[in-house]
Amino acid sequence: MAHTHRPESEIALRVKAIESLLVEKGIVDPTTLDTIIEAYEHQIGPHNGARIVAKAWVDAAYKQRLLADGTSAIAELGLTGFSSEHMVVVENTPQVHNLIVCTLCSCYPWAILGLPPTWYKSFAYRARAVIEPRKVLQEFGLVIPDEVEIRVWDSNADLRYLVLPERPQGTEGLSEAALAGLVTRNAMIGTVKVQPPEQPSTLAA
């Protein structure tokens, strides 16, 4: 991860000073800050995206709506939210592999996947995903054959992207909830595939 170039204690003190001034001047409300932190630490996360993916796997009509208009189909499940207002869902197939990045900052579908992981926000990922996606994917343990097309989506505007991964083999008997349990955050960004239940990916966090 990118380390801070100042001591952590110095930054923490600076943040405390700014917080106390902003609270004192009535610019931010401490209870509001707690509400925001609580929401992203405990309520919003990749489980939201996993529900969407699992539903698309078991419901062909839903999948069609999801790929045609991600925003409306995701709203059907009540999963709208900040930084996910305008959603596009792209489907991985045996012929096409999709990968999401934001080179200019770290735009990410917060309401669907939670806040982005450090690697997504890293300079290495932001710089490299567009110029050498195949090498980047290899670092996640994913080798994409030459004959498969890679589509990299740079989310630089107000639209946010979600990958609909391929449903793994051998999951025909699983319930929607059990399928959702297989879907990882990284699979919905496009850096890994969803593994069948017996073969958990080591990098699937």
């Binding site: 991860m1 200019l104 890293s122 290495a124 710089a127 990098l203």
Partner: peptide
Amino acid sequence: HDMGGMHGMGPIPIEP
């Protein structure tokens, strides 16, 4: 910040 395509950034820091 406009770093798409920059070289020398090293491996992806994947934190489990």
